[in-house]
Simulated assay, not measured.
Amino acid sequence: MENDSLPIYPKVYPSAQIQKKMDSTTIPLTTQPSFNQVMAPTLLGPENSITVCQFCQASIKTSIKYTVTARTHIAAALCGLICCCCCIPYLSESAKNADHYCPNCHKYLGTYEK
């Protein structure tokens, strides 16, 4: 084994186009999506996003919960040094990450990092 430290994954090839010949004309037919094709990830922004839940398959508008990060603590420290009001970053949503959840099944969908 040449690459013992690297994991081996099966190669995923895009679905091939099937061609059907009818009276000397070629009509391309595409196959239906197979189980090995991956859907494009949903882009989640800082606000509620309209998407399809990957768990319950419902068309939803995501609900958001804001979480405090290291960036929030750094902004609070800088505000404390500049204007002695270190609570501003904790009260505003601009220095927090937005965690998106499905309102139907309440599962976590992703995070928008600021």
Rank of each mutant, 00 (worst) to 15 (best):
Asp23Ala: 15
Leu81Arg: 01
Thr42Cys: 06
Val68Ile: 15
Lys96Asp: 00
Ala40Thr: 05
Ser24Ile: 04
Ile27Asp: 06
Pro46Trp: 05
Val68Arg: 09
Ala98Glu: 05
Gln17Lys: 14
Ile60Cys: 13
Ala98Thr: 06
Ala77Pro: 02
Gln57Met: 14
Cys102Tyr: 13
Pro41His: 08
Gln37Tyr: 03
Lys107Ile: 08
Pro28Gln: 02
Ile50Glu: 15
Tyr101Gly: 07
Leu29His: 09
Lys20Met: 10
Ile74Cys: 13
Ala95Pro: 00
Pro89Gln: 02
Ser92Ala: 01
Tyr101Asp: 08
Lys61Val: 14
Ile82Gly: 03
Gln54Tyr: 04
Ile82Asn: 01
Ile60Asn: 11
Thr51Lys: 08
Ser92Trp: 01
Pro28Ile: 02
Pro103Val: 06
Tyr90His: 02
Leu109Met: 15
Lys107His: 11
Lys11Pro: 00
Cys84Thr: 06
Leu81Lys: 02
Ile27Ala: 06
Val52Leu: 03
Ile88Ala: 02
Pro33Glu: 07
Tyr90Asn: 00
Gly80Ser: 11
Ile88Lys: 01
Ile64Gly: 11
Thr72Gly: 08
His106Asp: 12
Tyr112Phe: 15
Cys84Met: 03
Ile74Leu: 15
Asp99Pro: 05
Cys84Tyr: 09
Leu91Met: 09
Leu81Gln: 01
Thr26Asn: 09
Thr30Ser: 13
Cys53Pro: 14
Thr25Phe: 13
Gln17Pro: 04
Lys20His: 10
Thr31Asn: 07
Lys96Trp: 00
Cys86Arg: 00
Leu78Phe: 11
Pro41Cys: 05
Ala40Pro: 07
Leu91Gln: 04
Asn97Cys: 07
Ala98His: 10
Ile74Glu: 04
Thr69Trp: 09
Thr30Leu: 05
Thr31Glu: 10
His73Val: 12
Thr25Trp: 06
Ile60Lys: 05
Pro28Asp: 11
Asp23Phe: 14
Glu113Gly: 12
Val52Asp: 08
Ala77Asp: 07
Met22Gly: 00
Gln17Ser: 13
Leu43Gly: 06
Pro33Trp: 02
Asn104Ala: 08
Gly110Phe: 13
Ser34Asn: 09
Asn97Lys: 05
